[in-house]
Write a protein that binds this DNA or RNA. Structure first.
Length: 424
RNA sequence: GCUAAGGUGGUGUAGCCUGGUAGCACGGGGGGUUGUGGUCCCCUUAGCCUGGGUUCAAAUCCCAGCCUUGGCCCCA
């Protein structure tokens, strides 16, 4: 165990965890597809030059570099996208999704691994606020599909933040101020004040700044009114998004939060987060990054959103029913009936069900124990007698009841059980 | 990069202070007479994070490293 551990900040996922993860990802993928997004798979490894073009030295220290090369593992999915669209010529808007890993070499901590999954959807080529609205609405649908009913969308715009900071007339401290604001939820108002003071901002200015930004207390209309003083354009974009969400999608639990920052990154316009109910916090986030593709040679407006899948997994864990790796276990009495078992398995698989056969030549008792331990709901018992009669014993492992039926009936039973399971 | 607390079979733990036989539970495999599991009984499997030091003797004491979980920094 100790000699061969997983690398720092990386984990194995097996058993029920793995099944849950795959199912959740599958549902997310289905939603993305339904909204007309197409897959774009880019390499896990990119040239260091490519990776660093996006964020420069900021990210360079977190790269997993590959020895004796100028290559490194990607730290997010957006770099590959930007490189791709800059070098290709496709009909606009281009809508893509990707569910894939990324790696960052930093100290692991709560909710932050060195290897992590990202479920991103992006739209390239359109500067229209319909894109923002669509990504948000689609993400809400994905969250609902996963069983997260309550959520709130938080909206802000980098243009507004930039306007506010410009008004303070501070030199060289813009980033420090944004950084401080970003911590609002973590260190509180007083903490933010202290950090901003350290940037040599006047006390009066800080008070004013925080008054403008203070979240929670304001109606959207008031917040937007304030925001207009700093960026007419930015506030207008937010109004536009609010309007589309409300009247086209019927989504109204949206709040303008002028203190939302989302890192220093590459965002240039609207930024947003979705927080799930019950104090769970942010489960999705994204924004507009119109400059990024330009870094790779062809400027294109773009906006994207990313579901915080690791967090969703953690929240969902243990909430569901017991999960079985397959629908039915085919049990045999002896070597002679194994051929029959395999043929029955073929039939069952062709009908769209999953099944396992005994691969150890075990006694019936042990095969049943195995099925039980794996939480497989049904056992199909086959022996000489059954081979001759063509009737198999289908045993419901939960109730212990079993009936002698032909293969067609077995399939019907499995179908019935599947409907019940999915109906829940 | 900094910092705190930890690290004993696959999992959860006892033992550590006060060095001297690594114990328990769950899990895995098999069995309890011929073709039916979930509760019982028996057998079996498998472990002291790594390296160094102190000592007759180290899971236990000391040092370093690694990893885990948090916190800081930073943040797609």
């Amino acid at each position: 165990m100790a000699n061969f551990e997983t690398p720092k900040g990386m984990k194995d996922f097996g058993g029920e965890d793995a099944i849950y993860r795959e199912r959740m990802l599958e549902s997310i993928k289905q939603v993305y597809k339904k909204w007309g997004y197409e897959p774009l798979s880019t390499p896990a490894i990119e040239n260091v030059k490519t990776l660093c073009a996006k964020s420069g030295d900021e990210i360079a220290g977190q790269l997993f570099r590959i020895e004796k090369s100028e290559l490194a593992l990607r730290f997010d999915q957006t770099v590959g996208l930007a490189r791709y669209v800059a070098g290709a010529n496709m009909a606009k808007p281009y809508k893509r999704y990707i569910i894939a890993n990324a790696w960052r070499r930093e100290e692991p901590q709560k909710g932050r691994m060195r290897e992590f999954l990202q479920a991103d959807a992006d739209i390239v080529g359109s500067a229209d606020m319909r894109c923002e609205a669509e990504l948000l609405a689609m993400s809400c649908e994905a969250l609902q599909t996963l069983g997260f009913g309550e959520f709130e969308i938080l909206l802000n715009n980098r243009k507004i933040l930039n306007g506010i900071i410009k008004s303070l007339k501070i030199e060289n401290a813009e980033n420090a101020i944004l950084r401080a604001l970003d911590k609002l939820g973590k260190i509180g108002i007083e903490g933010v004040k202290k950090e901003i003071e350290a940037c040599k901002v006047k006390r009066a200015d800080i008070e004013q700044l925080l008054q403008v930004l203070m979240p929670g207390k304001k109606e959207n209309e008031k917040a937007l009114e304030l925001a207009k003083k700093y960026s007419q354009e930015g506030a207008g974009e937010l109004e536009n998004i609010l309007c589309i969400l409300k009247y086209a999608y019927g989504i109204e639990n949206v709040k303008v939060d002028l203190s939302l920052v989302r890192g220093l990154g590459y965002y240039t316009g609207p930024i947003f987060e979705i927080s799930a109910g019950g104090g769970i916090g942010s489960v999705a986030g994204g924004g507009r990054y119109d400059e990024l593709a330009g870094v790779y040679g062809k400027k294109e407006p773009a906006v994207g959103i990313s579901l915080g899948v690791e967090r969703l997994f953690a929240l969902k864990k243990g909430k569901g029913e017991k999960i079985s790796p397959c629908d039915v276990m085919i049990i045999t009495f002896d070597d002679k009936s194994y051929g029959g078992a395999v043929r029955a398995a073929k039939r069952i698989r062709e009908a769209g069900f999953s099944c396992r056969t005994d691969l150890m030549g075990r006694k019936v008792k042990n095969q049943l124990e195995y099925a039980n331990a794996c939480k497989i709901p049904f056992a199909l018992i086959i022996g000489e007698k059954e081979m001759k009669s063509g009737k198999f014993a289908l045993k419901d492992l939960k109730s212990g009841k079993q009936k002698e039926i032909g293969i067609e009936e077995v399939l019907e039973n499995l179908e019935e059980a599947r409907e019940i399971r999915e109906g829940l």
